[in-house]
Design a protein around this nucleic acid. Structure first.
Lengths: 163, 163
DNA sequence: TATTGTTATACTCTATAACTATA
DNA sequence: TATAGTTATAGAGTATAACAATA
């Protein structure tokens, strides 16, 4: 019985280590790719990754999004959304307005120029990723997509608990 | 033939989109987890993620590492390693020295306190990840580990080409 | 009172380039 | 000349909290 317990503890420890290993690998891979993507976005478009992310959210929503909703989707705090939106508005890529009766609400949406610019960015962005992932077959990518989604759901599930 | 070509182009486009989708999911998952890890490292240890990463590298190397080697492994530029190392040395977690005849070389290694502190950090870090990934079975984690490794190798492969 | 968003602040990271010392 | 690391600098991201306006 003692042996069983020891084995159980060791297996547990081993299993935890796999999770750490997975996390470190995800982190380093993401860092590797995002450093390259950031570099290219900056040199080719003068844009940052959070800006690209924000534009991508708006591109999916022709009617625009409230700043609070953008904050949730991009995981950028409310206070920092203000600055991001201000910079993009200065560049003429987005506009903000108060659409309804609730005067607290601000909605941001792409301008025509913003839509065109984002389309160009998205196109080359796609090419960059295709090049970087050239050695990974389609099946692996599909499998990964599903498995990472499971991880994300698990994380969300257990973060909301611990509030 | 035209149809075949169209299908090929469409499939190509679809495949590229899968890669983008995978990337965006990796990015958001990593962001979700690392925001939480960063928050906890900060509140419980007053440490940042790059600092934790640097300590982890040194923990694996009892004889310490050259700053240039740390730079490579952590993907932090040389100039920024200087500041990171300075902060950790102020905190007494690491020491630096010039071990050999080459007076240009600086090696950093953990102090006793650094080793103890990192051990505590690593232990809870492991627990955090175990909790967050509680819903992901062991097989999925192992599969992910291998597949993400393939992605990383592909990325490295195609980045070094385009220098 | 609660919600939406802004302002203020402090700190760290990130990237680049010029620079020093040494080999 | 090349290499190891430092310094300087600029900019952006990140987190927090206090705040104003509106509901």
């Amino acid at each position: 019985m003692v042996d069983d317990l020891e084995i159980a503890v060791r297996d547990q420890t081993e299993s935890n280590k796999q999770e750490v290993r997975l996390w470190l690998r995800m982190l380093s891979t993401t860092k590797l790719v995002s450093q390259e993507i950031r570099r290219r976005l900056r040199t080719e478009f003068g844009a940052t990754l959070p800006q690209f992310d924000l534009l991508a959210q708006l591109d999916r929503e022709p009617d625009g999004l409230r700043l609070g909703e953008i904050s949730k989707r991009t995981m950028v705090t409310n206070g920092n959304i203000t600055g991001l939106v201000a910079r993009l508005e200065e560049d003429g890529l987005i506009v903000t307005e108060t659409p309804g009766d609730d005067r607290r609400v601000t909605v941001a949406r792409l301008t025509e120029d913003g839509r065109r610019t984002f389309a160009r960015m998205a196109r080359v962005h796609e090419t960059w990723l295709h090049e970087m992932m050239a050695d990974v077959d389609h099946g692996t990518i599909t499998t990964l997509l599903g498995n990472i989604d499971r991880v994300q759901r698990s994380v969300r599930n257990h973060l909301s608990e611990g509030d």
